[in-house]
Design a binder for these strands. Structure first.
Lengths: 334, 334
DNA sequence: CCTATTTTTGTTAGCGTTAACAGAGACGCC
DNA sequence: GGCGTCTCTGTTAACGCTAACAAAAATAGG
C-alpha cells in the first residue's frame, strides 16, 4: 500500500543539488553555503519530505530510539517514570519504545531486551526492581548502552535509583519525632529492591533510636493488601504509628482503621510513600515521601546518552533523594 | 563503539547456503528443505544472530513498530490503555513506541505524529480525547494506518471508544433507581470527548426520568478539583446524589463531604467512573463504572492491523460498553 | 594574476535485508 | 531416456541514507 513519500534524491533534484548536500543540511553539517541551505530547506518543505529513520539506522548502525523495559506500567511509580523518560528523551530527539513484561523473570526480561536489540535501539533502560531481573542483565551483550532504574545495587551495572533507604528513614524518623514509641511497617513485596530499601531505612531509623523493630507486614503494593494488613493493625491496641511502603497500601490501611473506628491521626498516625496526586485527598490527607521521578528520568537518560556517545560503559551509579511531604495523617500519640 | 553483531551473510556462510535462504527460513517461506532449514537455524543459534529491523524496515517500507500518541500517560485511563496496547501488540510481534505530548493541541500532536512517521511506524494509535486533536488528524497523510481512541465521533477516522454515554447513563440511573430526586454531576474538562459523553449520558438519564438537569460542575479530572466542587456540594442541603466524571474527582468530593460532616452514603451518594484499583478502598468504597481497557486496546489493535494488512483505510467505528460496579457509596436518600 | 589553501559540492560505495528472477535438481509420465 | 513440471536454492538489484573520498569553486596571500 502506502505511496512512499519523497526521498532525499527527490529533494536534491528539486533544489538542484546532490543528495549528499541534502543530507548535510539535515544533519547540520557546517560547510554548506547559506543560500544552498535555504534552497534545500525550501525543497524539503515543498515536498513535505521526511527523513527515513530506518535507512539512517541501517547505515549508522543505530536508531534514534531508546528501549524501555518495565513491568507494570499501570502502577504510579513506573508510569510516572516512563512518562518522564519519554519527555526527556523527546527533548533529545529520541523516541521511546516500551517493552512491558508480564513477569520480571529471567526469560521475560531477556525476551523484551532481545526485541529491543533487534530493532537496534540506541540504548536500553530497564526498570528492574526485582532480583531475577539482575541476572538477566548480566548476560547481556556488553556493547549495548544500558541503564537500570531501581535495580540491584550490588550488581556492576549502571544504576539510577531513588534513595529508598533515606526516604524510609525520613518517614520513620518523622513519626518518632512526633513522639511515637515505635513504628510499624507495611512493606511491599520482598523481592522488590524498593521494598527492601524501604524496610532497611525503616529498620535503621528504629535501631538508631534504640528501638527493636516489630515484624514488618508484607503487602504487594495494592490497596487491597494494605486493607488486610490494616485489619490486623487495627486490632492491636499498642500500634500508634504505621509507615507503609507506598500510598496505595496506606489507603487500604486508612480504610481498615476507619472501619474499626480507629481515628487517624488521633489514635494512629500513618505515613506513605510515592506522593500519588491523590494522597492529599485521602481521609485524612496523607503524609508521604515524594520521589522525584523527573530527576530519576533525567539522570537515567543522561547516563544512557553519555554511554551512547562515548561508547564506554562505565558502571556509574546515581541516587536521587526523595522528600518528605508532611500532611495531616501524623500527630503525636495520645 | 558496538561491535556489530553477525549479519545474514555470516549465518549463510556458516550454514553453507545463500543469504536469501536464510531470509526464507526467517520469514517462514515454505519452499525450503527441512534439512536446510535446520542447518540454518543451527547457524542462527550458534552465532546468536538477530535480524536487523532497520534493514528490513528499509526494504519493506514498514517496521514492526506501532506508534502511540497520548497525552498524560500518568492518568489511570491512558496508562491502562497504553499498557494493554503494548501487551496486545507484543503478542502480534509489534513493538510500541510512545510519543507523549504535553498539550493536545494541533502542533504538538502533529509533531508527535511526524516523529512516528519518520521512523516509518506500521501504524499509529492516537489517544486523542480532545477537539483540537481531531483537526490535527484530518490533515494527516491518508496512507498511514491510523486508529483513534476516545476521539471525536463526528470525524471520519477509524475510532474505538468507551461508550461514555452508556456508562454515565448507567451511573445516573443507578442513583435514580436508589430513589434520588436528582443527580448532580462533577464533570471532566469540557474539551475532552470523554467528559462530553459522560455529561450527555448523565443528562439523558435525567431527561428520560422527566427531570431538569442541574448545572454540571466542571473539574479537571484531579482530586484537587473534585475537592473544590465537593466543598460547594457539601453546602447545598438539597444535594443527595453526585455522579463524578472519574474516580479521582470522586475522591476529592468524598473528602470535602467528610470535612463538612456530610456522611456518605447516608446523606449523599456518590458514583465515580474508571474503577481505579483503589476505588474499592475509598471511604466508603466507591460505586463506579468500569471501562474495559483491555477490550479497547484489543479492538484498536485489531482495527489497526487489518488496515496494515489490507491497505484499506475504512472509517470503522467500535464501541466498548462499560460496566457498573456497585459498592457502598450509594444508598437511598433519607 | 597565479598558486596554495580553504570551503563547498558531488560521486561512489556500502549498511542488511527482501523481491524478482534465474538456475539447478528431482520427479513423473509418455 | 527425454522432457515438462515442480521444488529448492542462488544471483542480482534495489530500499534511502551516511561516510569517505574526489573534485570544483571560492578565498587568500604574495
Amino acid at each position: 500500500m502506502a505511496v512512499h513519500g519523497p526521498a532525499m534524491t527527490d529533494v536534491a533534484r528539486l533544489a538542484g543539488v546532490s543528495h549528499q548536500t541534502v543530507s548535510r543540511v539535515l544533519n547540520g553539517h557546517p560547510n554548506v553555503r547559506e543560500q544552498t541551505r535555504l534552497r534545500v530547506r525550501a525543497a524539503i518543505a515543498e515536498l513535505g519530505y521526511r527523513p527515513n529513520g530506518a535507512a539512517r539506522a541501517l547505515v549508522t548502525g543505530r536508531s534514534q530510539v531508546i528501549g524501555v523495559v518495565a513491568q507494570n506500567t499501570t502502577l504510579y511509580g513506573p508510569a510516572s517514570l516512563l512518562a518522564a523518560l519519554e519527555q526527556t528523551a523527546a527533548e533529545e530527539g529520541f523516541a521511546v519504545s516500551v517493552g512491558s513484561v508480564r513477569n520480571l523473570d529471567h526469560r521475560s526480561i531477556s525476551a523484551a531486551v532481545e526485541r529491543h536489540l533487534s530493532h537496534r535501539v540506541a540504548g536500553i533502560v530497564v526498570i528492574a526492581p526485582v532480583e531475577s531481573a539482575g541476572e538477566a542483565l548480566e548476560r547481556l551483550p556488553k556493547d549495548v548502552p544500558l541503564v537500570t532504574v531501581d535495580g540491584d545495587p550490588s550488581r556492576p551495572v549502571p544504576l539510577v535509583t531513588v534513595d529508598q533507604v533515606a526516604g524510609a528513614r525520613a518517614a520513620t524518623q518523622h513519626l518518632l519525632d512526633a513522639g511515637h514509641r515505635t513504628v510499624w511497617h507495611v512493606s511491599g513485596p520482598t523481592d522488590w529492591f524498593d521494598s527492601v530499601g524501604r524496610i532497611d531505612g525503616w529498620r535503621q531509623a528504629l535501631l538508631a533510636a534504640g528501638l527493636d523493630p516489630p515484624p514488618p507486614m508484607p503487602g504487594d503494593w495494592s490497596a487491597a493488601s494494605g486493607y488486610r494488613c490494616g485489619q490486623m493493625l487495627a486490632r492491636m491496641p499498642e500500634v500508634t504509628a504505621v509507615f507503609t511502603a507506598n500510598d496505595h497500601l496506606a489507603l487500604g490501611v486508612l480504610r481498615a482503621l476507619h472501619e474499626f473506628g480507629r481515628r487517624v491521626p488521633d489514635e494512629i498516625s500513618v505515613v506513605g510513600f510515592d506522593d500519588v496526586p491523590e494522597a492529599a485527598y485521602f481521609i485524612p490527607p496523607l503524609t508521604t515521601v515524594r520521589p522525584d521521578f523527573d530527576a530519576v528520568a533525567r539522570a537515567s537518560l543522561q547516563m544512557l546518552l553519555s554511554q551512547i556517545e562515548s561508547g564506554t560503559g562505565g558502571a556509574l551509579r546515581q541516587t536521587v533523594a526523595p522528600a518528605l511531604v508532611a500532611r495531616q495523617s501524623v500527630a503525636p500519640p495520645r
